[in-house]
Nucleic acid binder design. Structure first.
Lengths: 122, 122
DNA sequence: CTGCATCCTGGGCGATACTG
DNA sequence: CAGTATCGCCCAGGATGCAG
């Protein structure tokens, strides 16, 4: 969990538009992306859509599916389907998805630890 | 720099829409916000607009000013004006702004350290 | 040089209704 | 229950031009 210092090319202007830090932030910039990743992480072994949606207030079915599809395309989330009636589906983090949990939880923990400060920023 | 574990109410569903972690992520979700904070941080003691814009490829004058105004409103950036002709202006991180550097640099460092991984995510 | 006012486009996001 | 299909809004963000 100990992070190396920022490489020198990130301390010299200018740095590329699609550099790694920017890509990471773009990944996290979707309104529901991190909430979903975080919730899937907490759930341990997968969540069903209905449960997932109930867990995240304000999340619409459409945005949930859309975000999940996007994460699936990127290989961060796996979709497990049980062919029964009514259908049973399970979403879980992939190996790649689990790697993203580290920076994400760092952010969440920092945010939680500095809630009072964040509340002062309108 | 050692972060406490996530409080229990973030491990219980559902948690509030405007909870601290979400606020932090919303703050970072603007396209140029973190780049500007990061660059101001690297510059040590303030940057002039022209220099700032040249440092961040793709940043338009309009978006730079708009983002800086927004950060100023939130008390994260201070604007120092020298009343001369032509005008000389200096932007620097405020005390609050400097507090945000910690989570931001964590993200940047993680991203830089995992650049190869991030490049595989389309 | 710094900064504002306009105009415009794309897409993120939400609401709703429908299918199996 | 899981998922799709439309429609439409809103606004972030880009281009351009003007002002002090």
């Amino acid at each position: 969990m100990t992070l190396p210092p920022l490489p020198s090319h990130y301390r010299v202007a200018p740095f590329a538009e699609d550099c790694a830090p920017r890509r990471l932030l773009r990944l996290f910039s979707g309104k529901w992306t991190t909430m979903i990743l975080h919730t899937l992480h907490l759930s341990g072994g997968g969540s069903r859509p209905g449960e997932l949606q109930r867990t995240i207030p304000g999340l619409s079915k459409k945005m949930m599916i859309q975000t999940l599809r996007d994460l699936e395309r990127k290989g961060l989330v796996e979709r497990v389907v049980m062919q029964v009636m009514p259908p049973v589906v399970d979403y879980r983090l992939s190996e790649s998805g689990r790697r993203l949990i580290e920076p994400l939880e760092m952010l969440y923990r920092w945010g939680a630890a500095h809630a009072a400060f964040l509340d002062t920023l309108d």
